[in-house]
Nucleic acid binder design. Structure first.
Length: 274
DNA sequence: ACGAGCGCCTGTCGGC
DNA sequence: TGCCGACAGGCGCTCG
């Protein structure tokens, strides 16, 4: 599910808390409960449960779509994949059907990792780079510049959709924000990355950063937009808008498949140059 | 190097 | 109402 803005929203939620849910910063982990073994990428369940016990939460970070919960000794890395959620709540609350991992803190609260489709993964490691070391640049980071991005685009001959979804080339974009960024930059998702001019690369660079920043802003007021199946579409321009008029030119939005993913674009604003 | 196809899982929705 | 296929925000693998 979540792409960079949603993971960032969860990061802030864990760090700052929110209506009834306290920050988990500084809390001590009494114990953990593993409710579905497949949740753990590493280490083995026995080692995980014994090792995490007694550690303190010393920081909450994010790299791409990975959430980094820094502990006194290890780093707990959480990837929510398609349907993961995180909730901080009192330990007396009943467990939901899709709860997969729980960290019980020594103050009566817990962190629950909820994951309907079981794609999400958790790592407990002393060396985060072994998990996230291959990721591409952080799109909102300082080292992601128009120049470096153009250079990267030029060094591959990939369809833009494929390029932007590849976490080794840029970290944090998923199916929604990829389409939204390409729409704003008026670039066809099937364009080859090495066909972009300097100006087009710059436009895409700006669009990606704007779209992600706006996404982060909007999550602040609608953390559960995706889980409530609700009104998130009011923030999006093309995703899931097949047949609806383009906001710029009224041409019906098209849906095609690229990378086995639904891909939405305006055939008029985002033409494929021959 | 690139991209298609598939598997991993569960749930929802629309058509018949 | 029930059944059945399509689809879902991710990603790793194989194969041509």
């Amino acid at each position: 599910m979540p792409e960079l803005p949603e993971v960032e929203t969860f990061r802030k939620y864990l760090l700052q808390g929110e209506s009834g849910a306290p920050s988990i910063l500084g809390k001590k982990i009494d114990n953990a409960e593993l409710l579905w073994d497949g949740t753990l990428a590493e280490p083995e369940p026995d080692e995980f449960l014994s090792r995490i016990q007694g550690q303190f939460v010393t920081g909450i970070g994010r790299r791409g779509k990975n959430l980094l919960v820094n502990l006194s000794r290890d780093c707990l890395i959480i990837h929510l994949r398609m349907s993961g959620e995180l909730v901080v709540e009192e330990q007396t609350n009943p467990l939901g059907k899709h709860y997969r991992l729980i960290l019980n803190f020594n103050d009566g609260f817990r962190l629950a990792f909820i994951n309907v489709r079981k794609f999400g993964r958790v790592w407990l490691t002393e060396d985060p780079s072994s998990v996230i070391g291959q990721l591409g640049p952080e799109p909102l980071g300082d080292d992601f510049t128009p120049e470096s991005f153009h250079q990267s685009l030029q060094s591959h001959s990939r369809q833009l959709k494929y390029f932007l979804l590849d976490q080794k080339l840029i970290a944090g974009l998923g199916n929604i924000y990829t389409d939204e960024s390409l729409y704003r930059a008026k670039l066809n998702p099937a364009r080859k990355s090495d066909s972009l001019s300097v100006t087009e690369s710059q436009q895409l660079w700006e669009s990606i950063r704007e779209i992600l920043r706006e996404g982060i802003q909007n999550q602040g007021s609608s953390i559960d937009w995706m889980y409530q199946g609700g009104d998130y579409q009011k923030y999006l321009s093309v995703y899931n808008s097949e047949g609806l008029p383009c906001q710029r030119c009224k041409t019906p939005i098209k849906r095609i498949k690229i990378a086995q993913r639904s891909t939405y674009y305006c055939p008029n604003c985002q033409p494929l140059p021959e």
